[in-house]
Computed example of a mutant assay.
Amino acid sequence: MVHQLQHCYRMPVVEKIGRRNSIPILYTRGTHYEVGFDVGCTFRGFIHSLLAASQPLNEVFLPLFETEAGQKVYHETLSSVRQNFPQYLKEMEGTADGAQVPFYKLFLLHMDEILPNVLREQPTKTHGTGCSTVCCNNPGEEILGHTEDALSEVLNHVYFVSAHIISDLPQGRWKVTEEKQSVCNLNGPGILLTARHFLTRALLAAENFSQAQEILRDSGCGAGDAVSINMTFLNQEGDRLFHNAEVGPAVGGANESALNIFTASPGEHIFHCNKYLRLQSPEAGGEITTSSDHRHATMSSLPCPYSRGDVINILGDQSDKEYSIFRESGDDDYVKTVAVGIFDCVGRTWSIYTDNPMTNEPVIVLPLQFKPSVK
């Protein structure tokens, strides 16, 4: 039956048509499954195309998934996520049903590097796929800017979902009953780990810094792969604070994620390019580390960011011809910057670019909306 599904759902990969200045947006409301189903139905073409084009999925994850050891890791991870975040699995099931694709392919993508890491296979992210983030914390200029870097096949597959999810009963480990957000679309056998994509999704329901730390620590389980999180809380009292959290996988018998957080107070800034700057944990190494080193060096050579314009100039920089911050030097690049987001915490806006922000206007400027606080 699995082979029949794979054959039935296979679709041709879209032609290379160059970078498009287009971002479709879906507004939806319902249960987790209903929202997922709407996403799958609306973006079915994108989902089919990306599944067909994804080199990590087709060349690494699926072959490992078909082995006995791979099946064991897959089901252990699935069981861990089902125990902690069953609502997100329901959402993914809805997306799979709406898009008419096999659920296990979507889950394998969300597992990311867990299979090759646990099975001691060559990781897929040996190229410089990491993103770049700049936070500027000055009076009237409270800006978080981020490049979304991905494998080249992700280009033109970006979409946004503005969802209002309401549940009759508290859902998951953190007993969430409502989520309202706009979103852009892990170490040895036998250890149950939480895929980082689910931890970062759970962060969207965090009301404060304390809750965010609790989610990232994931006590009793722990992250299965490393991730860097940049965040702020618009409704917090007092001065604006930006936080960079370096999250490491639970290893060596630990049952929670390794965590180190740096906070930028007024007058300070943050540069971060997907490598450990503070956390003492092993890293994959290779080209992704080289890329991060180059991008950090570029950022350090530029003037400190004091304004939105400074943040844009940094994120659009292409002075390093080998590992630029904004990735776009040719059609055959393995990695590209597929989108750039500029979050203005004073103006309460989110500007989204599909091309270099130094030379292009945003495709859309969205309001930063939040659910009302529960008294």
Rank of each mutant, 00 (worst) to 15 (best):
F262C: 09
N230R: 04
R240E: 06
G238Q: 06
T263M: 10
N230Y: 13
P249M: 14
H243M: 15
F233Q: 02
G222F: 02
A245Q: 01
G248V: 04
S219G: 01
R201L: 10
E214C: 08
R201H: 12
G190M: 12
N208C: 03
L192G: 15
F233S: 04
T194E: 01
A205F: 00
P189R: 11
A206V: 08
T263A: 13
E207A: 03
R240Y: 01
N255Q: 12
E237V: 10
M231A: 15
G252M: 07
A245D: 02
E237Q: 15
L204M: 13
N235P: 02
V247Y: 07
L259K: 07
L234T: 06
P266C: 09
G190P: 12
V251N: 05
F198W: 11
L204Y: 08
A226D: 04
N255C: 10
A212N: 01
G248Q: 06
G248Y: 04
Q213G: 02
A202N: 08
D225P: 01
E214D: 14
T232P: 01
G224Q: 03
G248T: 06
A205P: 02
I215N: 01
E237M: 09
Q236F: 03
T263L: 03
N260H: 11
L193T: 13
E237F: 05
S210N: 05
L203M: 14
L241V: 11
D218Y: 02
D218Q: 07
A245E: 05
L259V: 09
G248P: 05
A206C: 15
F242Q: 09
A195T: 11
I191M: 12
P266F: 07
A264R: 00
S228P: 00
H197T: 15
L216M: 13
G252W: 07
E256S: 06
P189D: 04
